[in-house]
Design a binder for these strands. Structure first.
Lengths: 236, 236
DNA sequence: CGCAACGTTGATGCACATCAATCCGAGTGG
DNA sequence: CCACTCGGATTGATGTGCATCAACGTTGCG
């Protein structure tokens, strides 16, 4: 995993992935820069269930996931919960910050991530302009995803939501039609704006219709991907 | 409206607002830069109802609203519609683009905007680094807003959605408690993931409860802002 | 084993959608 | 100035998809 000299865009991710002082990074970044990187970045680990970003606290840090999965969610005072997204390795966390964090972030599985203070990030960006560009690209992509989720939450039926969820995950993961979900039914429900009961019932309905197979609670096989994608898009 | 020399961040907005060759811009940007700006930016006007961004077409342009209001929405094949946002003067359009536009944009009122090709934007950014920074800030803010809307669409009741909508608009517009809505009930419904009937009924319920007054269909007076904010947050 | 957390399944309820009249206000033309 | 029209908006009657409540399975771990 070699870092191209002029592609500083991936720097943060690389630092995180390899550890700041790894050979590949040291090979291409001048020593004084490495010093700075070491000052501003930090490697962290959490076990499943731990919260590492707290809603309403000042958004001082910025994270890159390097291993494991995390869950981002927003809470209402009475306990209602909306999962706004799941983060997998390579994803940035904390972009969507405007003063205070508007969400909690919790480890779904054992999690490793790289932390940079916002101040550090600012310095890094001024030093590696391509990093800023990369972040902008990332933010644009996320915005695009967010719009899709608004359509899902505002207008899709339970069946369409589940179909969307399944195809979305099949798309990212190994291009296989077998997906392994690192999250619980409760997480899925809160992600899709449904209840666990509805998620359970709807998955079973899809199974009865011969569209999926449920090998194990967390292991689902997509038997008819095109049909699922059609349902997800609202085309039936 | 003078442009500070080193704050190129607002450049695009300024260009749009004043016209590329306006005195204030010419005063602070070298001539050869102005030439470039003129090449890449373009002033456009639309009348209410016109569509200027089409879902699924390649995302080639980037816009800044300078006058009037626009509506962004996503459509499903069977006609279901989700309004993902409203744009008012100063707002950027087209950030959330990932290959093709994922939404339609239509003028709600007579509309003026400034167009920059994505290629032009790239050149502008390399020339005025602060512009990129500004866009990143903007994208972060939008992401934050998007998360709030996911919570609204996924978990809030009709009453809470309307309260959120009203306080949101009261917050932006003149800090008065009287808001004038440039959109129809249908737009509001599709924005909040409800039907026009529910919007109408719920607004009347808020009126009966003494929380708002409806002077005119488009003119609403907030009588008890704190109570509305409390409802919006789910605190009752 | 035996608990505890998670998941499924069934019966019932309700918030909001749907269907169906009216109503209202801004244009338009006589 | 009024009658006519027509796209929104309101209001009411009814339907339904999903939530809620409740009971029971299932899995995994000490």
């Amino acid at each position: 995993m070699l870092l191209r000299h002029h592609d500083a865009a991936n720097l943060a991710a690389e630092c995180a992935r390899c550890g700041v002082r790894s050979a590949s990074v040291c090979a291409v970044v001048p020593d004084e820069d490495i010093e700075q990187l070491a000052t501003y970045t930090q490697h962290l680990e959490f076990e499943a269930g731990q919260t590492f970003i707290n809603q309403d606290e000042p958004a001082e840090d910025f994270f890159v996931v390097t291993e494991g999965h995390a869950r981002l969610c927003t809470l209402m005072p009475d306990g209602r919960r909306q999962v706004t997204g799941f983060a997998s390795p390579g994803q940035f966390l904390g972009l969507a910050a405007d003063g205070n964090y508007a969400f909690n972030a919790e480890a779904l599985t054992p999690l490793k991530l790289c932390r940079v203070t916002r101040h550090g990030l600012k310095l890094l960006m001024s030093q590696f302009p391509q990093l800023e560009q990369r972040l902008l690209t990332e933010a644009s992509r996320e915005l695009s995803v967010a719009q899709g989720r608004m359509l899902l939450l505002g207008r899709k039926t339970a069946r369409e939501r589940l179909a969307s969820f399944l195809t979305e995950h099949a798309g990212m993961a190994a291009c296989r039609d077998v997906i392994v979900l690192p999250m619980t039914r409760t997480d899925i429900a809160d992600y899709l704006g449904l209840t666990i009961e509805t998620v359970s019932r709807t998955l079973n309905a899809l199974r009865r219709d011969g569209l999926i197979e449920i090998d194990h609670v967390t292991r689902i096989r997509l038997l008819d991907r095109p049909a699922l994608e059609d349902i997800a898009a609202g085309g039936a």
